[in-house]
């Protein structure tokens, strides 16, 4: 009896010994698309497959990034942590060349690959299989709307054991969303400011009012003069200058500085109300664009900026202070007042 008990005990002990490293090392999580993935319990290095997820991870904890998707420009570097911008460039699968070398990715020893689940394409299919071959788990986040960014902060905070940080970012985001929402809800349809979103060097590529690329205009209570159903998820709808003159927007949001300069000097554009009133606004883009392309959490600050821009009386906010707070919390960089003004393009 005694011998059997001791045999049982030693078996139990053996099982514990075998299992112990297992349970401290691996954690089963459910990612934002509902897939079950096993990742190391304490993940310390993550390879982000494309810029939106890399920026997300940067906000949560920039020291966890295994590498960059592409090198940052000098202007962008100013607004990012120096240790982050000096990480090796590993490339990424985001359709702009810079295909990662599989061995470079392996040599970086990432605990998992973080990717944005957007479209399932044949090109993704082969990347998923490759990740499987390398034995590196793949975790998806969804980042289609602002709400999902908030959820993504909490999700990443949870799986990376940075709950507090994730919650702080999510709460700050929610505060901005909640600050804007009632103001926008109170704006009567007749008083909504008409907006044209100008992309491309000639400013004649825009987005439909229903497109996620122009989501901020709707959220900020603006009326996108281009009312249509998006042709596809890519957008960049071509319009003619006549349509813009006919739509006569009160505000133009310029993606490219080359366009905003053109609009101020070109006689054709002078027929548009926004140009006459000096309301061609450059969208802040450092270190990441506040509006779109690439989409990032900077949109949350972008929402505050755009609402303030469209309705300075209904939504009076000190944008310099807001910008400095946001950069301090999300990007971990300190801006002085002049730098904040430069970022805001004032």
């Amino acid at each position: 009896m005694n011998a059997r008990r001791s045999a049982g005990a030693s078996l139990l002990l053996l099982a514990l010994l075998l299992l112990a490293p297992g349970w401290s090392r691996a954690a089963d999580i459910v990612d934002m698309t509902g897939r079950s993935v096993t990742i190391p319990d304490r993940s310390t290095k993550i390879f982000c497959a494309s810029p939106p997820t890399l920026y997300l991870l940067y906000a949560l904890d920039s020291t966890l990034a295994a590498g960059l998707n592409f090198p940052f420009t000098e202007k962008e570097k100013v607004h990012l942590r120096p240790d982050f911008v000096n990480l090796p460039v590993l490339g990424g699968w985001f359709g702009q060349g810079r295909t990662p070398n599989l061995e470079s990715v392996m040599a970086a020893k990432p605990d998992f690959i973080l990717a944005w689940y957007w479209h399932q394409t044949a090109a993704n299919d082969v990347i998923e299989k490759t990740a499987q071959t390398l034995g590196v788990p793949l975790v998806y986040v969804r980042l289609d709307t602002l709400e999902q960014y908030v959820k993504a902060f909490e999700f990443l905070g949870r799986i990376l054991h940075r709950e507090e940080r994730g919650k702080a970012l999510a709460d700050a985001s929610r505060r901005i969303l909640a600050d804007v929402a009632p103001v926008v809800a109170a704006i009567p349809e007749s008083e909504k400011v008409s907006v044209y979103y100008a992309q491309g060097p000639d400013g004649l590529k825009t987005e439909c009012d229903t497109s996620v690329h122009a989501e901020l205009i709707n959220l900020a209570g603006g009326r996108n003069i281009r009312s249509c159903a998006a042709r596809d998820s890519f957008g960049m709808e071509a319009v003619s200058i006549e349509e813009v003159v006919f739509g006569n927007p009160e505000v133009i949001l310029a993606k490219e500085r080359r366009f905003s300069e053109l609009a101020r000097t070109n006689p054709v554009w002078s027929h548009v109300r926004a140009v006459r009133d000096g309301k061609v606004m450059d969208i802040p883009a450092y270190p990441f664009n506040w509006f779109d392309r690439p989409p990032s959490f900077m949109r949350i600050l972008g929402l505050c900026w755009l609402t303030n821009l469209l309705y300075p009386d209904r939504f009076p906010r000190d944008m310099v202070a807001q910008t400095r707070d946001f950069y301090r919390l999300f990007l971990d960089v300190e801006l002085d007042e002049n730098q904040a003004l430069t970022v805001l393009g004032r």
């Binding site: 359709g95 090109a123 071959t133 998820s233």
Partner: peptide
């Protein structure tokens, strides 16, 4: 093709490369 996703995928594929060859 969708120029953000599909067009680059096609273009880069046609430039050739073995980075994603599997066993």
């Amino acid at each position: 093709a969708d120029p953000y996703n599909q067009l680059p995928a096609i273009t880069y594929w046609l430039m050739g490369g073995f980075s994603l060859v599997t066993r």
